[in-house]
């Protein structure tokens, strides 16, 4: 497999993204909104707390949960872009001439992976920076120190988020292969976040300790495993002949 070929495919997609402003807005708007909203909720909680210790208790519960929330975002964001880069090519019938070039299925698939991965991770990380800065400003008075950056945030943003984006991209490739409609593909693609949302809720109600680095590493490891498993499934879905004769 030649990575240079994958990069050519991805660069082509990046070029089309520049023309598809709406697609880019739709990718960045959600993380930015969430990153403004979460600190706003934090702010409300701090102000409504009856005393300082109540405020502290609330913060130690919600800040790890809010940080974890970015993994859900990482699962959601790639749906739009992965379904666009793959279903989009299918709908515009641009896949056939592409498949007639001396490239392997893996090279094309990997290129598509890169073109979905880069903007998705960028969007989530851009959001995370806004979130961390705003949260620090809001909570510094109560905590007496800057909550971010911290090791848990590093594990989530730099390790678990990219792994989740990969999982979501892979899942969406598989879904896109079966879907004819970009919208339907996106919706089914969203299902990938169900387990993450489950963990998030458990964290909110204090059933899972999301401020424990060990727990976060376990979640990351499980996602890595899912990444590997989905990869072979993705490979099996993306075969020239089937794309041309079965993808309707």
């Amino acid at each position: 497999m030649r990575l240079s070929i994958s990069w050519i495919v991805a660069s082509k997609d990046f070029k089309t993204f520049r023309r598809k402003r709406n697609l880019m807005y739709s990718i960045f708007i959600l993380p930015v909104l969430v990153s403004a909203l979460l600190p706003a909720v934090t702010n409300l909680m701090v102000q409504r707390a009856s005393d300082h210790s109540a405020a502290l208790t609330r913060l130690t519960l919600i800040l790890p949960a809010f940080t974890f929330f970015y993994m859900i975002l990482a699962g959601v964001i790639p749906a739009a872009i992965a379904s666009y880069t793959i279903v989009g090519e299918k709908v515009e019938r641009t896949l056939e001439p592409l498949l007639a070039t001396p490239t392997t299925d893996s090279e094309i698939l990997f290129g598509k992976g890169i073109s979905a991965f880069v903007p998705s991770v960028s969007a989530v990380l851009a959001g995370s920076v806004i979130f961390m800065v705003l949260t620090d400003l809001i909570t510094h008075g109560t905590l007496g120190y800057y909550y971010f950056p911290n090791w848990n945030a590093a594990i989530i943003f730099l390790l678990a988020v990219p792994l989740t984006v990969i999982m979501s991209v892979e899942w969406n490739v598989i879904v896109s292969a079966r879907a004819t409609d970009v919208r339907v593909a996106q919706q089914i693609g969203m299902l990938v976040i169900a387990p993450l949302a489950g963990i998030y809720v458990l964290g909110e109600i204090n059933m899972v300790n999301l401020s424990d680095a060990g727990n976060l590493l376990i979640v990351a490891a499980v996602i890595l495993l899912v990444d590997v498993l989905l990869f072979s499934l993705t490979r099996a879905t993306f075969r020239r002949e089937e794309i041309l004769t079965k993808w309707k």
Partner: peptide, 14 residues
């Protein structure tokens, strides 16, 4: 080989 499929399949946004 060079191939022109029945649907030309060009990238319209490029």
């Amino acid at each position: 080989i060079g191939f022109v499929p029945d649907n030309v399949g060009l990238y319209e946004a490029l």
